[in-house]
Design a protein around this nucleic acid. Structure first.
Lengths: 341, 341
DNA sequence: AAGCGCGGTGTAATCGATTACACGCAGTTG
DNA sequence: CAACTGCGTGTAATCGATTACACCGCGCTT
């Protein structure tokens, strides 16, 4: 590469190859439209100069950034790790970069809009059901329709593309598993929100209980925060009951781990005294003691499919007026944290 | 906001406020240089039109993207979750966006260079010591010096800014802890690489053993992959020995968890039969059974400091020719996975 | 031989924001 | 009253890549 103070532009390459900038551009984007000899000269010049396309200029001209924005409320949660990986690799495969943002903190609706209107990102991968997507999607009736895919977290808006899992059904299967093991007093640790996903799991819990002819008691419910400490707190709450549940369904594995941890601290064994079933199947679930029975979420697939359909929409492969709604299946993974009563 | 087909430009705002685009730009970037009446008119016009700055145009003009690139070999590892969180929030506070990329797969040196030269990112936060930073940093002697901060993973290049922890010392303290408990046969699960961080821990292990007058045996060493399955495999290997170590130092918590899990499977108890100490203090370490003794890494701080100094460099607050080398301290967190022999 | 078609290339406008420079219009100052 | 200062604003060039359009030259038809 040529030594020089500044990064070479397409003009520099053109000069090197004794052609016009237009030709260089064509060699780069549609090589078949350029004669072979010229093409070779240009390719050589690109190599010699060490030319790299200036994305800002390209984005400005094309009004597209080849970048997607991934927003989640708590990227800090290990649950997202696999998903991020999948999103990155799928995006890279399609030639897209990935901006990441946390959707908590100062009015996400505001800066998300900003990102998308400012030619920084061409589309949004949203892992947060709590945002006001009406405002995001319609962008205040501006008529600008925004490539948006909601993933993992359910959003009750049929207009919005989504990639989710069968949360309600999965919850029902979790409960049925416990029922089949003979449990009748089954508790639930959930998350307080109108958040679609958790809510679906809650509904599934109730439906399955009703279908099994079992009662649900408000005191068997605990509110958690999706993390381990809150699972532990939930355990404290449930263990204090005069009549404890014999099994507990936690809305995610982290809370389940916290729950079991706290149980053990109190001298209550899992699954001997209380069976616990989680949700997600994070990596550590298998290595935990006892290995956690859980509903596995196909996280890698969620990330991959969501990214894929977002890019399909951006590139017009998928028409925007026919929203895609993908529902992936969860699997019951039976390990050692549940047992027959 | 005004209904319209396209996103408003600075010209549109100018027209609304009956001023020139230059004035609008000034109101946005240096309000004090504009008279108060004009400023108010423009501000109102911005609000009315719903104007959002076009970043591509801005980047093109300013040759800066207000974006940093975070690259790690395996963002999929939960270890990074906290770090990502910290990076995001610190970057947001300084008005920067964050692009994330995985530094494995097709020649990272190549596309990293691409990112940085293409006005997509202004600097690089590198969590991967295995990359050829000579090439990255000097960018082939192009004279273009690139804002780069190496974080977490050590890079043996005094020219490169870094934010790391005291790996060697921390490893020594881990070993000393075991020695104080009376252990003499101490194994180590490490990662095979010239990767600075792991290597420092390995050196620390050897130094501490020597200082304590203890022998190290090659068969007490196992190679892992930083994840739980490889920790389990390491356990299999070490448990098969005629004379097992009585304590094992694992280079990260994930491997430690895998190790303990496999021990239990084989009917070997931790810490009764073998004490295990980890490294990092990931969230689950505390909730695992037994709660893991480990060397806590100030991950949040690593992310925050690294981001801060990167942006300082980008903005010229920190001169490039005086590399910053920050070494943060790890803490020994004694829990239940280690005990006196 | 004039005209047509076509592949290959160049010319120049364009995307939207920034900023050096120029200009106009007070309000001083000598 | 001319010259000067300085604030506030506008004009126009600029960043680098893309692409519609024009053009050139060659081979082919009629």
């Amino acid at each position: 590469m040529i030594s020089g103070k500044k990064t070479p532009t397409i003009q520099d390459v053109a000069r090197h190859a004794s052609v016009s900038a237009a030709t260089v551009s064509r060699v780069l984007s549609s090589p078949e439209r350029v004669s072979e000899t010229t093409r070779e000269r240009v390719t050589a010049a690109v190599r010699e100069t060490g030319y790299t396309i200036n994305q800002a200029a390209r984005s400005l001209r094309l009004k597209a950034a080849r970048t997607i924005l991934m927003a989640a409320p708590n990227i800090g949660n290990p649950f997202y790790s696999t998903i991020v990986d999948a999103v990155l690799s799928e995006a890279a495969a399609r030639g897209y970069s990935v901006l990441v943002a946390s959707s908590i903190g100062d009015d996400p609706n505001l800066w998300l809009r900003d990102y998308l209107l400012s030619t920084r990102a061409d589309g949004l991968l949203l892992f947060d059901g709590s945002l006001d997507t009406k405002r995001l999607h319609g962008l205040d009736e501006g008529g600008v329709s925004l490539p948006l895919v909601a993933a993992y977290d359910e959003i009750p808006d049929p207009e919005i593309n989504s990639v989710i899992t069968d949360n309600r059904l999965a919850a029902k299967r979790a409960i049925r598993h416990l029922v089949e093991l003979g449990h009748r007093r089954i508790g639930h640790v959930t998350f307080p929100s109108r958040n679609g996903t958790t809510n679906e799991r809650l509904i599934g819990y109730h439906e399955a209980m009703t279908e099994a002819g079992l009662e649900t008691h408000p005191e068997w419910m605990a509110l958690g925060n999706y993390n381990m400490p809150s699972g532990a707190a939930a355990a404290e709450q449930l263990l204090a009951l005069k009549q404890r549940p014999t099994a507990v369904f936690c809305a995610n594995d982290e809370m389940a781990i916290g729950f079991v941890h706290q149980m053990r601290k109190a001298g209550v064994e899992c699954p001997r005294d209380i069976s616990v079933i989680g949700f997600d199947d994070i990596t550590v679930a298998e290595y935990f003691d006892p290995p956690l029975t859980t509903m596995r979420q196909p996280r890698e697939q969620i990330g991959r499919m969501a990214t894929r359909s977002l890019i399909d929409i951006i590139e017009g492969i998928q028409p925007e007026d026919e929203p895609v709604h993908l529902v992936l299946m969860s699997d019951l993974i039976v390990r050692k944290s549940t047992r027959a009563i």
